[in-house]
Amino acid sequence: MSNPLDTVFAALADPTRRAILAMLLEDDMAVTDVAEPFKMSLAAISKHLTILTRAGLIAQEKRGRVKWCKLQPDAMKDASVWMQGFGQFEPVNLDAFERFLKSELGSEPHTPES
């Protein structure tokens, strides 16, 4: 995707990635700690983290043997500004936005394995 806004929205479209972002609001986390609450492989979580990193939503860095993830504070600024134009400056509910996109695009979102 060539447009950074498209890349951010594509990353935000997945509920697992949104859950990861919510976890990182609290503090930086090791990749293994990020993976812990999800019922999927570490490789699957790593793919999600790669997508979030490419979108500029998180940064990953190696500290010793451990890879850490941290939220990029200004990463959603452009997306937030764009969405506010549709909500007359009220907060945007991303789950409602996902349902809207699903109804418009007719596609089923990816959900974590259960």
Rank of each mutant, 00 (worst) to 15 (best):
A13L: 09
V31F: 05
R17P: 00
K67G: 05
E98P: 01
G64P: 07
P4A: 07
D28N: 09
H110R: 09
D78M: 12
T50C: 04
A22V: 11
A11W: 00
L52F: 01
K62R: 14
V81K: 14
E36L: 06
P37S: 06
G56T: 06
L71S: 06
D6H: 09
S114Q: 14
L21A: 04
R63H: 15
A96L: 13
L5Y: 05
F86S: 11
R63D: 15
H48P: 00
A75V: 08
R54K: 12
L25A: 11
G87M: 10
A30C: 08
H110I: 07
A35V: 03
P4H: 08
D27H: 12
D27L: 10
V31Y: 02
L21N: 05
D6Y: 10
A13K: 08
K102F: 04
P112W: 00
A44R: 04
G64F: 08
L25R: 11
F100I: 10
S114F: 14
S114C: 11
M23C: 06
A75G: 15
M23K: 08
S46N: 08
N3H: 14
L5P: 01
L101A: 13
P112Q: 04
F97H: 09
D78A: 15
D78G: 10
W68C: 03
W82M: 12
S107P: 07
G87Y: 09
L49I: 00
A96K: 11
L57I: 06
G106T: 06
M83P: 02
P4E: 04
R54W: 03
T16I: 07
E61W: 13
P15M: 06
S41Q: 02
L52D: 00
A22G: 10
E108C: 06
E61S: 11
